[in-house]
Design a protein around this nucleic acid. Sequence first.
DNA 1: ATGTGC
Length: 507
Amino acid sequence: MSDHDDHEVREYNGIRLERIREHVWEIPREGGMNVPARVLASEALLEQIGDDKTLQQLRNATHLPGIADRAICMPDGHQGYGFPVGGVGATDVETGCISPGAIGYDINCGVRMMRTNLTYDDVVGHEEELVDALFANVPSGLGGGGIVEADRGTLEAILNRGVDWALEHGYAVEDDLAHCEDEGMRPDADPDAVSQKAKDRGKNQIGSLGSGNHFLEVQRVTDIFRPEVATEFGLEADQIVVLIHCGSRGLGHQICTDYLRRIEQEHGDLLAELPDKELAAAPAGSELAEEYYGAMCAAINFAWVNRQLIMHRTRRVFERVFDREWESMEMELLYDVAHNIGKKEVHEVGVDAEGRPAAPDDAVDRTERELYVHRKGATRAFPAGRPELPAAYRDVGQPIIIPGSMGAGSYVLRGGEESMAVSFGSTAHGAGRTMSRTQAKNEYWGETVQEELRDQEKIYVKAQSGATVAEEAPGVYKSVDEVVRVSDELGIGDKVARTFPVCNIKG
DNA sequence: ATGTGC
């Protein structure tokens, strides 16, 4: 491709980046940085990333104790609370730390895709009926309750066992568990570490989309890029699929709030050393780090049950609208991926003479270490062969689902061979916003957006609030095509298929 | 993202 020497350095808000190779930009280590940072982006995407506080937050993340190799920003990165959305940072579980802000308020926000054997022709003419039925049956918006109301014991079981609870109670089939990241259950969950306030907020939100960028979308497959992988994933052109994007609602949000406050109270010493209070972290090995990890894992399980119940309800809605059993429509889960998560994983990293993570310049060896991998607005992208992958995908690489805006459609990718070396086995998670919600509401009017999508694109959108439609207008997002192109060209997540929206319901 | 707020 084009290599221009005079384009090798960029500077945004006083932060200098050096171009390492195509789509890889490095902030060299200096001052209090423990490691360098890298941005994975095309020139066009880097321009947008340089706009706000993203690079500052990425550089701040390199100050986290025990951070390994480098902090990384994905092509869809933008500023978040303390740490970029689209950021990945891996810290040593013995000598490092865990940072709630580097995981996100919406713990296990994520996406699942369900296949069907319907084609677009089967749905044309039924869009309004379908979108109305979905909207009437899948709870969305800020209030409104969920699909099940949990008593104390039920919530405890959900937090402990995730989708395994849903299986026991008829909301899932065995096959659903086999097609979910971690089989829909994080074993390290500790419900006792979840405050009563968090539990109270979550108990009537199980099976609800929430608001903001969360949605349920019926889509059609428009493009297949790797036919042999698409076949393994059960995808083909013209097929109807369903995408569900939501997280852990008030429960995860409250856990993040609770632990940020406790870190401030109990670990002010570490906090004082960090460049931003929002990056607050609990030292590895502390009681608080263990409690937060246990609570966070419980929220992970909660979010998986949330998406499972919504999928279960969606199957029922399709049964009524198309007057067939869901099994005969082959409404099977393709995969469920988390994109706001912290997880203990083993990776090969640079280490010093004592075997502790060290910057590439100081490392005397590379060895396997157990790390807290913080993925905030980033998706796990493990390639073929990783033992964490379910049997169905172990030989082909994990499916990765990257939702675009409600006017753009989404992508299915496959975990790329380079992801372990480049990004701790991670890739992007979406298109990334280009403007604030407030700005979006000034630029767009919800009803107009809906009419244009229907009349020009045959996309049927139904929402609780017109303001939400304006905030999520297609024009407020970066190009998902460009984000995915970078992932594909870096070899961290390979393009498999593209979809286009048919019906969309949201808060 | 979020019963959108110290």
